[in-house]
């Protein structure tokens, strides 16, 4: 009886462990395997078994890392992230602090409206904004033209970064605002009641008391927003049919997809995918370690 009792938690965990093995561990192992192999033509290259998989060591990695498009794509994603994360979280924090003020009105409406884009898939959000960026259908351009101005070109060159950043700011601000606002609501109001009586302004209270108290939530939102930024895929993919200046290798994710499924280079795509995973994990763990060390000291 004691023996069977000991296996109870494992029984409950069995579905999760099996799923993890099949859909996380096995695919990662397979990606690692592919990344170390290549297809080679055997003999004259005729017949069904004319191609075989051979061990090539780190060759695929050398090729992947030497490809200037990967580095350029990483650079574009970093630039996009440097625009997106501070803007989105800055707005989320601002809105959350304003919602937390005692004399703000129409709070329920504003909160709901700003949270609404969370219910819109990235692909639909990009589609909607994509049309709003098209001078022929956009009300923004309609008004600008009526006033005699031509609007900025958001679908080419540097404008694209603005276009993509705007889509993601629109889609992500509300969710982060709610996370931060929930943290603010959990702070006991007595903590700043006395500051208020002492004549501190709301801005001072926000800066000196509220923001330091909700630091864990800010760290959390920063961490997950940054990871989501690195994974940008649906948004540039959706804008592609609307512009000719978004290449299929705009972000490293898109490059992996193209290499694997458009060009059929599974082995080199696997190497790139493993590099992306390694960089993501390395950045995540160093960040978490840094946060924990600062929290401990």
């Amino acid at each position: 009886m004691a023996h069977t009792r000991r296996l109870v938690p494992h029984g409950f965990l069995a579905p999760a462990i099996v799923l993890f093995g099949l859909f996380f561990a096995l695919p990662i192992g397979y990606a690692a395997h592919l990344s170390l192999h290549s297809m080679q033509v055997k003999g004259l290259g005729l017949g069904r078994n004319a191609r075989e998989e051979v061990w090539v060591g780190l060759d695929n990695y050398a090729t992947a890392l030497a490809d200037p498009e990967l580095l350029a794509g990483a650079g574009r994603v970093l630039r996009y992230g440097a625009m997106l994360v501070p803007t989105m979280l800055g707005l989320a924090l601002l809105f959350a602090l304003l919602l937390d003020l005692p004399r703000t009105r129409f709070r329920a409406f504003s909160r709901l409206a700003i949270f609404l884009p969370y219910a819109v898939p990235g692909i639909i959000a990009s589609l909607l904004w994509g049309f709003l960026y098209l001078p022929s259908v956009s009300p923004g351009y309609f008004l600008l033209n009526a006033a005699g101005w031509s609007g900025p070109d958001l679908l080419h060159g540097d404008g694209l970064f603005l276009a993509l950043t705007n889509i993601s700011v629109w889609g992500g601000t509300g969710f982060n605002m709610i996370v931060i606002y929930t943290a603010l609501r959990a702070v006991p109001p007595e903590l700043y009641e006395s500051a208020r009586l002492d004549g501190c302004s709301e801005a001072q209270i926000a800066w000196r008391i509220k923001i330091p108290l909700i630091r864990p939530s800010l760290v959390l939102t920063f961490f997950f927003s940054t990871i989501a930024t690195l994974q940008v895929f649906a948004e540039p993919m959706t804008l592609r049919p609307l512009t000719n200046s978004l290449t299929f290798t705009w972000s490293p994710y898109m490059k992996v997809y193209r290499d694997a499924f458009v060009q059929g280079g599974l082995h080199s795509a696997a190497a790139t995918a493993v590099v992306i995973a390694a960089v993501t994990l390395l950045l995540s763990f160093s960040f978490l370690k840094l946060v924990n060390r600062r929290a401990a000291s």
Partner: peptide, 24 residues
């Protein structure tokens, strides 16, 4: 207990920005 209009307006501006694509 007067309304603070600046925070209210900033939030409404945010709400309008979020509703524009949906209204469009």
């Amino acid at each position: 207990r007067r309304t603070s209009w600046v925070p209210t307006l900033v939030l409404l501006l945010g709400a309008v920005y979020c509703l524009i694509p949906v209204l469009w």
